[in-house]
Each structure stands twice: as structure tokens, then as C-alpha cells.
Computed example of a mutant assay.
Amino acid sequence: MRTTIGYTAESIGYVVGAQGLVSFASQTFFGTEWGWLHNVVDLPSTAYLGIVAVGLALIVGGVKMRKTPQPQKAA
């Protein structure tokens, strides 16, 4: 179960981080809106960097969660 939750958190982190990065880059360098995140929230371009950080935290947390050894149950 821990492995499944770890992979799920990691996968969500990749999507959230990528959308934050795309939104930041599109607003900062091109003045347009790319991705789907701008349909959900309307944030200034620097706030999207916080979303990238949340995505990275989910990735790191997911990797750590699935890499930690599970305690063995006593028989």
C-alpha cells in the first residue's frame, strides 16, 4: 500500500510541478496562458513558482514513502 501511495503522490507531483512551470514560463516570457492551471486559478507569475515547489515536495515525499522499508509483521 505504501508503494502505491508513493507512486501516486509522485505522479501527482510531476503533473502539478509541470503545470506550475509551464504557467510561470508562459506568463513571464510570452505573456500568454498555457496549460490548464490558469483555468482553475488566476495567480501572478511568481506564485506559480510556489506551485512548482509543491510539485517537487510531492515528488520527494512520494519517492521517500515508497523507498522506506515496511515493518515486518510478527507471525
Rank of each mutant, 00 (worst) to 15 (best):
Phe29Lys: 11
Phe29His: 06
Trp34Phe: 11
Leu49Phe: 11
Ser45Gly: 05
Val15Phe: 15
Val52Thr: 05
Leu43His: 02
Leu21Arg: 00
Val40Ala: 15
Ser45Met: 07
Val52Glu: 02
Gln27Leu: 13
Thr28Pro: 03
Val40Met: 13
Val15Arg: 05
Leu37Val: 13
Trp34Tyr: 09
Ser23Trp: 00
Asn39Gln: 07
Phe30Gln: 15
Tyr14Ala: 01
Ala18Gly: 08
Tyr14Pro: 00
Gly31Arg: 14
Phe24Lys: 11
Tyr48Asn: 12
Val16Leu: 10
Gln27Pro: 12
Phe30Ala: 15
Gly31Asp: 07
Tyr48Lys: 04
Val40Ile: 14
Gly35Arg: 04
Tyr14Thr: 00
Ala18His: 01
Leu37Gly: 15
Thr46Arg: 12
Val40Cys: 14
Ala53Arg: 09
Val22Ala: 13
Pro44Gln: 11
Val16Gly: 04
Thr46Asp: 14
Phe30Tyr: 06
Leu49Glu: 08
Gly20Lys: 00
Ala25Trp: 00
Ile51Thr: 02
Leu21Pro: 01
Gly17Arg: 05
Gly17Gln: 10
Gly35Glu: 08
Thr32Gln: 10
Thr46Leu: 15
Thr28Asn: 11
Gly50Ile: 12
Tyr14Asp: 02
Ala18Leu: 02
His38Met: 06
Phe24Glu: 07
Val41Asp: 10
Thr46Phe: 12
Gly31Ala: 09
Ala47His: 10
Gly17Tyr: 03
Ala53Val: 09
Phe29Met: 09
Leu37Ala: 15
Gly20Met: 02
Gly50Ala: 13
Asp42Glu: 07
Trp36Glu: 03
Trp34Pro: 01
Ala25Leu: 12
Tyr14Asn: 04
Ala47Leu: 11
Val15Gln: 13
Phe29Pro: 03
Leu49Trp: 05
Thr32Asp: 14
Leu49Gln: 08
Val22Leu: 10
Val40His: 13
Glu33Gly: 05
Ala53Trp: 13
Leu49Cys: 09
Gly35Phe: 14
Gln27Ile: 05
Tyr14Cys: 01
Gly31Ile: 09
Glu33Trp: 00
Asn39Val: 04
Ala47Val: 06
Val16Tyr: 04
Val22Lys: 05
His38Arg: 10
Trp34Ala: 12
Tyr14Met: 10
Gly50Val: 08
Thr46Ala: 14
Leu37Arg: 02
Ala18Ile: 00
Gln19Cys: 07
Phe29Leu: 11
Val16Asn: 00
Phe30Arg: 14
Asp42Val: 02
Gln27Tyr: 00
Gly17Lys: 05
Gln27Asn: 15
Ser26Thr: 06
Glu33Leu: 05
Gln19Met: 10
Val41Trp: 14
Ile51Trp: 15
Glu33Pro: 03
Ala18Glu: 02
Ala47Gln: 06
Phe30Pro: 09
Phe30Thr: 13
Ala47Trp: 02
Tyr14Val: 03
Val22Ser: 05
Leu21Gln: 04
Val22His: 05
Gln27Glu: 11
Ala47Ile: 06
Pro44Leu: 02
Asn39Gly: 12
Ser26Val: 00
Val16Glu: 01
Ser26Lys: 03
Ala25Ile: 06
Thr28Glu: 15
Leu21Phe: 13
Val22Gly: 04
Ser23Phe: 00
Ser45Thr: 07
Leu49Arg: 07
Ala53Leu: 11
Pro44Ser: 12
Gln19Thr: 04
Asp42Pro: 07
Ala25Asn: 04
Val40Gln: 13
Val22Asp: 03
Tyr14Arg: 08
